[in-house]
């Protein structure tokens, strides 16, 4: 009996240690990125493709105000309401004092400079697939953007989701280093896949989620309930859209559907980002979308 109790205790300790190890914050260090430097001019394109402004600028920001990343927009979910933080170049309230290694750790591992897990409302799950050079360029570009001294607002997330460490377990289950679409693609569609999956994170809204809030990769871009609780975010697989490559690319530029309806909701903001890309990149995203497996 004594032996059995000891066995159970040891098993518990091992499980606990494994849990702690699995959920530990993983940091990217200066040594990991030795020699990596960013080019702010190249970073602007990454900034628009990655859609930073859509969530981190103030609600309804237009024009140059979309470059003021003061945060504050609310994102409702079934786990609570998340608030986009200030990621402006302000050293106190934003990320102005972050090192490149801290920036990459945040974007690719979902870990703050203080070692805290971010909630996956922040799409580090996607940015993790991005080239570090692109993210270094983004880092350099973001340093050139205006500072805002608006303090970040706290998330409104109830127990048990308020336990940040639990996100470590979520990460162990959901972080991936492969693209969702692994089929053979044309060079153009591959470029589109990189833009759509690693930077623009289309799947975050257009792919349904499982009970834990992880993306249901088997239904990639198959459409999902709108987290606001009203309506549906559309299925954007080829058969469901029914648009030509040219129509998709033009929509991403001017926001007009083929029958000249105008995008609303969060997609409007996405289109403002996409309009900043090159025509070739918009065509690449369109080519990728037409290569994604059809979902009913």
């Amino acid at each position: 009996m004594r032996g059995f109790v000891r066995f159970v205790v040891i098993l518990g300790l091992v499980a606990g240690a494994a849990g702690l190890w699995l959920t530990r914050p993983v940091h990217i260090t200066d040594t990991d990125i030795a020699g990596l430097t960013g080019d702010p001019a190249a970073g602007e394109a990454v900034f628009w493709a990655a859609g930073c402004a859509s969530c981190h600028s103030a609600d309804d920001a237009e024009g140059a105000d979309r470059l003021i990343l003061s945060g504050g927009q609310a994102f409702p979910s079934e786990f609570g309401t998340f608030r986009a933080p200030n990621i402006s170049s302000d050293a106190t309230h934003g990320i102005g004092d972050w090192t490149l290694a801290q920036f990459l750790t945040a974007l690719q591992n979902g870990i703050s400079p203080e070692g805290q897990h971010y909630y996956p409302a922040f799409p580090y799950t996607a940015y993790r697939l991005a080239e570090r050079q692109d993210l270094a360029d983004l880092y350099a570009f973001m340093q050139t953007l205006p500072a805002s001294d608006t303090p970040s607002e706290p998330h409104d997330v109830g127990f048990p989701f308020s336990i940040r460490r639990a996100v470590g377990a979520w990460n162990a289950l959901h972080l991936r280093d492969d693209f969702a679409v692994e089929d053979d693609l044309s060079a153009e569609a591959e470029r589109g896949r990189y833009l759509a999956e690693a930077l623009a994170h289309c799947g975050e809204c257009h792919t349904p989620r499982n009970a834990l809030g992880g993306l249901d990769l088997a239904n990639w871009l198959g459409g999902a309930p709108d987290p606001s609780g009203r309506g549906t975010i559309p299925n954007v697989t080829p058969g469901a859209i029914g648009w030509s490559e040219g129509e998709i690319a033009a929509y991403l530029n001017d926001g007009f559907t083929p029958d000249f309806d105008v995008a609303g909701g969060h997609m409007r903001s996405v289109i403002l980002n996409m309009a900043e890309l090159t025509e070739a990149d918009r065509a690449a995203i369109a080519a990728y979308l037409l290569s994604v497996p059809d979902m009913p």
Partner: peptide, 12 residues
């Protein structure tokens, strides 16, 4: 777009 943004529900 500005009006659809806040005042029109997504389709279905």
């Amino acid at each position: 777009g500005s009006c659809h943004d806040d005042y029109r529900a997504p389709a279905n």
